[in-house]
Simulated assay, not measured.
Amino acid sequence: MRIWLPLAAALMTGLAALPTLAEDVYRWVDDDGVTHFTSHPPKNRKADQLRTQTGHSEPVDYATQYPEEETPEQEQPREENRGPTQAERDDACQRARENLRLLEQGGRIAEETEDGSRRYLSEEDKAERAERAQQIVEEAC
Rank of each mutant, 00 (worst) to 15 (best):
N99R: 09
H40G: 10
E123T: 10
V60Y: 01
T38W: 00
A140H: 04
Q94H: 08
A96S: 00
R118A: 13
P77L: 11
E79F: 10
G14W: 04
S39M: 14
D31A: 14
A22F: 12
D31C: 05
L21H: 04
A87H: 09
L15F: 11
Y66D: 08
E112C: 09
K46A: 10
K126L: 00
D32F: 15
E75K: 08
R95C: 03
M1N: 11
E111S: 10
D90A: 09
L103A: 03
G55R: 01
Q105P: 00
A8R: 08
P59A: 15
G116L: 09
L103I: 04
R89Y: 06
A96H: 00
R89F: 09
P77S: 10
A10Y: 10
H36M: 00
A47Y: 01
Y120M: 08
Y26Q: 06
A16G: 14
V25T: 14
G106S: 03
G116V: 04
E23H: 15
E111W: 08
A127L: 07
Q74K: 08
A87T: 09
G106M: 06
Q65G: 07
E68F: 11
R119A: 11
G14Y: 04
D48E: 03
A92Y: 02
R2H: 06
E114N: 08
L15G: 04
P77M: 12
K126E: 02
T85I: 03
G14C: 04
R132A: 00
A130G: 01
T35K: 14
Q49V: 13
R51W: 12
E73Q: 04
D125L: 05
E98S: 01
K126G: 03
A133L: 04
R97F: 05
C141E: 01
P59F: 03
N99W: 04
M1S: 12
R82I: 07
I109H: 02
A17G: 10
P42E: 01
Q53F: 11
G33F: 15
W4F: 14
I109F: 08
Y26L: 07
R101A: 04
Y66L: 13
G55Y: 09
G55H: 03
N81A: 13
L21W: 07
H40F: 12
C93V: 01
Y66R: 15
Q134I: 05
E75S: 10
N44M: 11
K43L: 13
A92E: 00
R2F: 03
D48S: 10
P19A: 06
E123Q: 13
L100K: 03
R82G: 09
T113K: 06
P6M: 02
R101F: 11
M1T: 07
A10V: 08
D125E: 15
Q86I: 11
S117A: 09
E104I: 03
K126H: 02
R129E: 05
D90G: 04
P41S: 00
R45S: 14
P6Y: 03
T64E: 12
L100E: 07
Q105I: 06
E70K: 13
E58M: 14
E73D: 01
R27P: 10
S122V: 06
N99H: 05
T35Q: 08
R45M: 15
E124T: 14
G83H: 05
